[in-house]
Every structure is written in structure tokens, then in C-alpha cells.
């Protein structure tokens, strides 16, 4: 995750407004640092970093709003929309690998179960009938391996990927709308000048 840039040369004994303006301008710039990268849906890290940058900006607008004459609430609404959309995309980007990991976990459990059954059988007397021994082993193995979960996990992965595609398309639409509406220029204008 990209760290926020350190704000240098700010005098904390000044009034809130000029300090808040300086900080907000830096954080707005940090959102726009990702504007090219997020045009590629494969740039998962940059999409996540833009979400964090929007989140920081949102909190700052909430905290510093009192210092400005212009009502910053309409800007906050737009920032929240972007943060929520990017958050939903991030959720899918986390869930898909987590589901894949769950498949690995199921496979590992299955191996452990097979090993335990083989050890158990080896410790017992040698079976008189190998076919009966095999069928007994298989019945216990099938009962314990949770095989019925796997197709569903694959289906969930596919579902999450579809949702991610739809969310990204909505994000792109919103981001283009924001840029066309000159969001940055309007917000910086609302902060005024020193």
C-alpha cells in the first residue's frame, strides 16, 4: 500500500484553513497519481492504492470541512461513491484468491485423511480380501474428504469474477464522469487560495 506523502513545512500554530488546504491539495494529487494505471483492470495494486487515496481524502474532507466557507459535502458524496466502488472491486480481488486457497486447504485435508487411513490400515492385521479392504478404505475416505464442496467453490470463484468485471465497468464509467465534470478543478477551487 502506498504511504501518504509527508507534509513538510506546515506551521501548526497557524489557523486550520491554510494548513488544511495544503494537506488536501497533496492528498488530491495522490488520488490522481493513479489515473492512468486504473484504466487497466489488471492493475489490482493500483486500484487498491487509489481506493486508499480516496479513503484518506474522504476522511480529510470530513475533518477539515469546518474550516472552509464552501460546503464540501457534495464533493464528499462523489468521493464516497468512488471509494465504495473501488472497495467492492477490492473485495472480489481478495475473495478470489481466498477461495482458491480454500481449495488448496480442502486438498491438504484430503491428503492428511488418506495418510491417516493408510497408517491405520497398516497397523491393523493384513486384510484377507484386498477388494474388501479397498472398498472399506474408499468408503471411509469418501465420507471424510468433503469432495462435494469443490464444484461449489469453483462456481463461487466464477461468480466473483463476473461481479468484478461488472463492478470495474461501473467504476470506469464513474471515473470518466468525474473527470469530465472537472472534479479536481472544482474541489481545488472550493479550497480557495492563500
Amino acid at each position: 500500500m502506498a504511504k501518504p506523502a509527508r507534509i513538510r513545512g506546515l506551521d501548526p500554530d497557524r489557523r486550520l484553513r491554510p494548513c488544511a488546504r495544503t494537506i488536501l491539495r497533496v492528498r488530491i494529487g495522490e488520488v490522481y497519481a493513479y489515473e492512468r494505471a486504473v484504466l487497466d483492470p489488471q492493475n489490482v495494486t493500483e486500484l487498491h492504492d487509489m481506493r486508499i487515496a480516496f479513503k484518506r481524502l474522504r476522511y480529510l474532507l470530513e475533518i477539515f470541512g469546518i474550516a472552509f466557507e464552501t460546503d464540501l459535502e457534495p464533493f464528499l458524496e462523489e468521493v464516497r461513491t468512488m471509494q465504495d466502488l473501488l472497495g467492492d472491486i477490492h473485495d472480489r480481488d481478495v475473495q478470489v484468491p481466498a477461495l482458491a486457497e480454500h481449495l488448496d486447504w480442502l486438498a491438504a485435508r484430503e491428503s492428511e485423511l488418506a495418510r491417516a487411513l493408510v497408517h491405520e490400515q497398516a497397523a491393523a492385521d493384513a486384510p484377507a480380501d484386498p477388494d474388501r479392504a479397498y472398498h472399506a478404505f474408499r468408503a471411509r475416505f469418501e465420507a471424510g474428504r468433503r469432495a462435494d464442496e469443490r464444484p461449489g467453490v469453483h462456481a463461487l470463484i466464477a461468480r466473483r469474477r463476473r461481479e468484478r468485471d461488472e463492478l470495474y465497468a461501473r467504476f470506469l464509467e464513474e471515473w470518466r464522469r468525474l473527470r469530465a465534470g472537472r472534479f479536481r478543478e472544482r474541489l481545488e477551487g472550493a479550497l480557495g487560495t492563500a
Binding site: L10, D13, L16, A20, E62
Partner: peptide
């Protein structure tokens, strides 16, 4: 809901605002 921060006003100093909000 976030708690209201008492004593905030447009002309407050950055340092005092820091203490009140944090």
C-alpha cells in the same frame, strides 16, 4: 454516528483542532 467535536470553529488553530479531534 461520529461524535461531535466540541469547540471547533472556522478560525481555530491547527494545533488546537488536532487536540480536540484526536
Amino acid at each position: 454516528k461520529a461524535w461531535e467535536v466540541r469547540g471547533m470553529h472556522p478560525r481555530i488553530r491547527f494545533r488546537e483542532a488536532a487536540g480536540r479531534v484526536v
